[in-house]
């Protein structure tokens, strides 16, 4: 969701070139954010701005439904003849709206449930595009992304992302504003306000508030989430997450809650990670009755 590296004091000393790379790589969200924040006190992987391959597979089972499998392959190429500000990227881009409105630990495996609410234009798709980092202003960092989804009829998109951090003694506040324009799905906007707090060497919390609007659905939707990350040792961590989703139309109401606990560990070398998640959804459509699920996920990173 939001780039959180400045929670870690060491990261504040990076030089401007690395800042550029770090900001671009912060867009590689399921790659670095989950890993780094999950292991609580890890530094950001600055090298990931180089060519990278990410492979993951997950098995997801919710109560009363069939086992779902998910496989994902993402590639990020640092091609020659491009500057530090420009990156060419081929990746399976997760739907931004779904990502903002779902528990991130299980978002990829919730495609069936989530997309039933949306059209096919919101499914995860492979995209090819170029990221261009705009000159950093005092007020905020910004990134323009132009790309095309690997789909027919063609669906090019333009994305503008602006970020601003406020660091205080007790908490880091991140503002993140994203505007997206898809040829097929029209205009979308995502506003996020995040509070990060590192309590000690073991615990840190992240509280995220996301507001989204899409041309296609024409209503505002909101999600609040609170996650507590617990550092258990070298490359091992736990996270405890709760979330609530709300809609603004026809009146402001909450249409679902969710809770999950995840355990993540480095399994092999410096590249193979495993995550086990248990949790439950409480959708309004089922009178807030719990809908339990488990997920086992393996992730491999090569760079």
């Amino acid at each position: 969701m939001i780039y959180t590296s400045s929670v870690f004091a060491e990261e504040k000393e990076v030089v401007s070139g690395e800042q550029t790379g770090k900001f671009i790589s912060s867009e590689w969200r399921l790659f670095n954010r989950t890993i780094d924040s999950f292991f609580s006190n890890q530094k950001y992987l600055l090298k990931e701005n180089k060519s990278t391959i990410f492979v993951s597979t997950a098995v997801y089972k919710s109560e009363g439904s069939k086992i779902e499998n998910d496989f994902d392959l993402q590639m990020r190429f640092d091609l020659p003849k491009t500057t530090k500000r420009l990156k060419l990227v081929i990746e399976k881009e997760q739907n931004e709206i779904k990502k903002a409105l779902t528990d991130e630990n299980v978002a990829r495996n919730k495609k069936n449930r989530i997309t039933s609410k949306y059209t096919t234009a919101y499914e995860d798709r492979y995209t090819a595009g170029a990221d261009f980092l705009l000159p950093k202003l005092k007020a905020f960092s910004s990134l323009i992304k132009f790309g095309i989804r690997l789909d027919m009829p063609i669906n090019p998109f333009l994305k503008l992302n602006m970020q601003k951090e406020y660091n205080t003694k007790y908490v880091e506040i991140d503002l993140n504003q994203t505007f997206l324009l898809y040829r097929q799905a029209g205009f979308q906007e995502i506003s996020q306000l995040t509070f990060n707090r590192k309590w000690n060497e073991t615990f840190h919390t992240e509280q995220v508030n996301s507001l989204v609007w899409t041309d296609e659905r024409d209503i505002f939707e909101l999600r609040h989430s609170l996650t507590l990350y617990q550092h258990l040792g070298e490359e091992r961590g736990l996270s405890y997450a709760v979330g609530a989703n709300a809609k603004f139309s026809p009146t402001y109401y909450y249409d679902g809650y969710d809770a999950s606990v995840s355990y993540r560990q480095l399994l092999y070398g410096g590249w193979l990670y495993g995550t086990f998640t248990v949790g439950a959804d409480f959708p309004k459509s089922e009178n807030f009755k719990n809908d339990k699920f488990v997920q086992l996920r393996l992730e491999a990173f090569f760079h």
Partner: peptide
């Protein structure tokens, strides 16, 4: 895709 206008048509 099979479409009347596969490049610029509506999904």
């Amino acid at each position: 895709v099979l479409h009347k206008n596969p490049i610029l048509g509506k999904d």
